[in-house]
Design a protein around this nucleic acid. Structure first.
Length: 355
DNA sequence: AAATCAAGCAACCGCCCGTAT
DNA sequence: CATACGGGCGGTTGCTTGATT
């Protein structure tokens, strides 16, 4: 039995919204809210629109405090960092950029940022081929100093934002990249299903379905609280629909840790995680590099593929050099297989009960 | 001035997931 | 447990606008 359409397609208007439609929708929602039912909303207002269309219009354009265009360098960096870490999960990325919508970020990434970064990376590839190492160093030095990390005070979450799970807005300082903040990254990755080890945290049998730890002893009580909320969610979902959800989230969390390690290296200029493990990954799993092809350019050499992160965040190769690489989600989904096939892998990621 | 091309963006489509029945 | 339904999301489409020939 096929799905019933969400609306009567024949009697529904499509295409651009008129100012009148915008006004109707906006004033109604501001007065009465959405009523928790987008499908019924257009009939109440007298709009010949699909409920989903109304929802999209409201979320992307009519909601207060929406910012359009004019992405800052700082926002670029956040988007890049998150894209590298979690992939095209635009809603999660958008939650880190108050005032931005997932659609906006997605469009921005697809139309500009991707090309911008690709151009940057190719430039570096060419420079490397020419062997002009001194000019590269100069470029990198310039780039490092040009990365703007100016805090944006105007971007606090407003009351219309809670529909997306709000993570703590990145606490930016003018001293360095926003993503230097471990806790922000932790919160984000926890949201995606992982958790961090906590000296005060004692795993219970009920939590063992999520036996993932991040090797970070600085986890805070708030982090633990978030994790426990997450664990509660998982317990709830597993109670209603089996353990599959937990298993899925566990994989995501494992992926998140891999990404987290690389991501922290990425943003902090620390190469400790990357060097050995990633070289091994690359030599063992060159096919796993799919998904970020656009960064690689036409150069088949793996080493060239790996300079991408440096390009992305405008950081020098010095922090990770030719060994800094993160894996797209589908790679991480095969994490168990990777562990089995590559014993060394285990050495780098300690999980509870594996020591 | 007209035609063509490319970029940007708003909106739609279809799938997945959670929840209610 | 199965089914229906709504919400949410990412991918894609197609229109608009500006640049170039």
């Amino acid at each position: 039995m096929g799905r019933a359409p969400c609306c009567d397609k024949a009697n529904v208007k499509k295409g651009p919204w008129s100012p009148e439609e915008d006004t109707k929708l906006k004033s109604y929602i501001e007065k009465h809210g959405t009523g928790g039912n987008w499908i019924a909303l257009p009939q109440k207002i007298g709009l010949k629109r699909c409920g989903k269309s109304c929802r999209l219009r409201w979320l992307n354009y009519l909601r207060p405090n929406i910012k359009h265009g004019g992405f800052s360098e700082e926002e670029d960096n956040i988007i890049c960092s998150l894209y590298i870490s979690i992939g095209s999960r635009w809603s999660v990325i958008a939650a880190q950029l108050p005032g931005r919508t997932d659609n906006d970020i997605k469009n921005y990434w697809n139309t500009r940022l991707k090309k911008k970064l690709l151009g940057k990376h190719r430039k570096e590839q060419q420079a490397r081929r020419v062997g002009n190492s001194s000019s590269i160093k100069q470029q990198e030095a310039n780039r490092g100093s040009s990365v703007s990390m100016v805090p944006d005070d105007s971007s606090h979450q407003q009351s219309y934002w809670p529909e997306t799970p709000v993570l703590t807005p990145l606490p930016c300082s003018n001293q360095g990249p926003c993503f230097n903040d471990h806790d922000s990254i932790r919160r984000l990755l926890i949201k995606l299903g992982g958790r961090f080890s906590d000296d005060h945290y004692q795993p219970t049998p009920i939590h063992e379905g999520l036996n993932l730890q991040f090797s970070d002893a600085t986890a805070t009580a708030s982090t633990q609280q978030i994790y426990e909320e997450q664990a509660g969610n998982y317990m709830g979902s597993s109670a209603s629909s089996g353990m599959n959800n937990v298993a899925i989230n566990k994989n995501e969390a494992q992926f998140a840790e891999i990404q987290y390690c690389a991501g922290v290296d990425l943003v902090q200029g620390q190469g400790s995680f990357s060097s050995t493990i990633l070289e091994e990954m690359i030599s063992s799993y060159p096919q796993k590099l799919d998904g970020l092809e656009f960064f690689y350019g036409e150069d088949p050499m793996v080493n060239d593929k790996i300079g991408l992160i440096g390009s992305i965040c405008g950081q020098s190769a010095s922090w990770g050099g030719p060994t800094s690489l993160v894996y797209p989600p589908h790679v991480a989904s095969n994490y168990q297989g990777m562990r089995q096939e590559m014993p060394q892998f285990e050495e780098y990621f300690r999980y509870p009960g594996t020591q």
